[in-house]
Amino acid sequence: MSPVLDIAQAGVRFGTGPAAVKDVSLRVAQGEIFGLVGESGSGKSTIANAVMGLLPATARLDGSIRLNGEELVGLSESALRVRRGDEMAMIFQDASASLDPTWSVGDQIAETIRAHRPVSRAEARARAIALMGEVGIADAARRYRDVPHRFSGGMRQRIVIAAALANHPKLLIADEPTTALDVTIQAQILELIDRLRRDHGTTVLLITHDLGVVGQVCDRVGVMYRGELLEVATTEDLFTRPAHPYTRALLAANPAGAVRGSRLPVIPQEWSTESLDAANAARDRRAAHG
């Protein structure tokens, strides 16, 4: 089966600066949760924004990004806008900051529907209430009119998820969706994402610096370092048989492996070109066998 998301030799450069993302290729199959891990500045969020077409005007993107076989690189802003919120969606770290404080939460969910579907106000409202129920907001019809600051952080992230998934997009990009939440709420949100993926067959690209999150829900994982994708492996392989020395260092600094809530340490060692080359060879071998 062809992958939902197919990124090939993608590179991103901001202005005249060095490449923020270099030659990244990865494929995510339908219904898969693919984790992208790395320290901040490793380029993982840049990839997310590149897929969504949300890079700033100064960014230059090359290579290929295909969504369900359709090339996204080179599409106009209006063509990308039609796809955002419909075929692909994205949620961000801080749910409180993701919602317009002056709009009711229900209207913000209905807005996604009405941006893409010619439905009546009442129809959009009914669908939004159903979505609120689906993401676990109790008494959804009554809370439709409430503004975001009347909800807790976890509830707000549920609303953001409902707004993002309102049109049942094929791809959901979740950029650090649980980082701002405390541990029990984190687990609930991850479970929600996992359940929605199973119910609707949504493909998820989960960006995180938290190995605990990876261990909890991801099927496969890509490790990024300084704009390069060092290795891709199943979650189990990554934790038990890491191929790249950087990944090993990551896991070593994080001895419990999939300890929930643990953050990636900054690995002080500089990675030489040789070690990267060796690691890339290992990655390619694995890809050839897999």
Partner: peptide
């Protein structure tokens, strides 16, 4: 504000 980025991610038109 960050919520404007989320609005763009929802596919809301610039005018709106």
């Amino acid at each position: 504000q960050p919520f404007v980025t989320f609005l763009r991610a929802k596919g809301v038109s610039p005018r709106r």
